[in-house]
Amino acid sequence: MVALPGDQAQSAALQTGKARRVYDKTVRTADPVQRERHADCMAAISNERSRPAFSELFDFYAPRIKSYMLRLGASDGEAEELAQDVMITVWQKAGMYDRKQASVSTWMFRIARNRRIDAQRRQRRPELTADDPMLRPPEIEQPETLMARGQLEGIVRSELVKLPADQLLLLQAAFYDGLSHSEIARAFNLPLGTVKSRIRLAFLRLRGELEGAT
């Protein structure tokens, strides 16, 4: 989220390594119609190897994946290459995507996260060229018993748009940036206990366990 000049006073900026993360109070809502459309695009890629469908997903996701990579400290060139890499992986693995298990953005996020882990590992150990799936989370879901994944997506997304802005920002720091609670406490200038209880509260709401709680 890009901070507008007027928002500077309200936003907490945080420096970790090379990455500069800016948290502002803007809450955007994702569009469910668009989400269905993206799942249709995945089907068209898988079934017909559709270039227009791929182009549509590229136009939407590649700039967002690049910004995700930049946010986590990649250089502009690295972020661009990783975004390309992710989109080409999406083309290759489209047949493994199951719209009943996950939204396109969740699936796309997993691929982006894992490509970044692979790139970092190659940087540290250049001799390791083959992907090592043991050392990163899986991209493909195991069949689930506890709660249908599609159902989980539905609850999380409907609750997410109702979350107060301050809780959403803490979630972003924890789940998108992967910061520890103490790092978040420093970044937002909050007591550690407050961070823990707010994140826990937000998390329970997203699981549908605290209907209507604030």
Binding site: S103, S105, W107, R113, V156, L171, Y176, L206
Partner: peptide, 8 residues
């Protein structure tokens, strides 16, 4: 991951 995906 769903939270991360939504933020993405």
């Amino acid at each position: 991951e769903v939270i991360s995906g939504s933020i993405l």
